[in-house]
Design a protein around this nucleic acid. Structure first.
Length: 191
DNA sequence: ATAGCGATGTTCT
DNA sequence: GAACATCGCTATA
């Protein structure tokens, strides 16, 4: 088992921190777009009132109950797609929402998909759109699927804050933002 | 820079 | 019928 798989099999909060700074690579529709993850949020299972899995399995959240490394893609506010990586021991639901990143490859196709030149990945819906992640990828693996996590984390400092747009369990500081040690990060004002 | 608002699928009350 | 792990447009400063 690889280091990444070990990380994703661990507790979801630790997995979230460990995913920061890693490359998320999308090979879809003949284009490659890659980002370094700069903002993530952890969501648990029956112990986390803010989680989609809090009340058990539904049609939407079923992939949250799958193996670590599974993509959980859901529609947000009926409009946008949001991408998560399932984390935690098998059989225990949990996932890390990929909220923002810095584009490090494929800026051209990312801009085309977003229909603008900046703000390509500074939000979960924007990140999914830039990487062409939609509901058809729900249930795929980030270990060997068309959307993958690759390499080791880029160095930086992490800070923890409350999760965004969450009212229940609002005291949990399960959002993690990375300030890269080097590089611009011009497209990620939140970092 | 910040505030208000409309769009709308899935889940919950 | 209402809430929600959001975004981009418009208006105002």
């Amino acid at each position: 088992m690889s280091g990444l798989e070990t990380l994703l099999s661990g507790p979801v909060v630790a997995a979230a921190r460990g995913l920061l700074g890693r490359r998320l690579v999308s090979d879809l529709d003949g284009d490659r777009v890659a980002v370094v993850l700069t903002e993530v949020e952890a969501y648990g299972g029956g112990d986390d009132p803010a989680s989609h899995a809090y009340r058990g399995r539904t049609g939407r959240n079923r992939s949250m109950f799958g193996a670590p490394g599974t993509l959980y893609v859901y529609r947000s506010y009926g409009i946008h797609w949001c991408a998560n990586v399932v984390c935690g021991p098998v059989g225990r639901p949990g996932a890390v929402l990929l909220r923002a990143g810095m584009v490090v490859a494929g800026e051209e196709p990312a801009r085309r998909r977003r229909g603008r030149l900046n703000h390509l990945c500074d939000g979960p819906g924007k990140l999914a759109q830039a990487l062409a992640i939609t509901g058809t990828l729900d249930g795929d693996s980030v270990i060997d699927g068309p959307v993958r996590i690759e390499g080791e984390p880029a160095p930086g400092t992490t800070r923890a804050t409350p999760r965004v747009g969450v009212t229940r369990a609002a005291e949990r500081r399960w959002r993690f933002v990375l300030r890269l040690a080097a590089g611009e990060g011009a497209d990620n004002p939140r970092a």
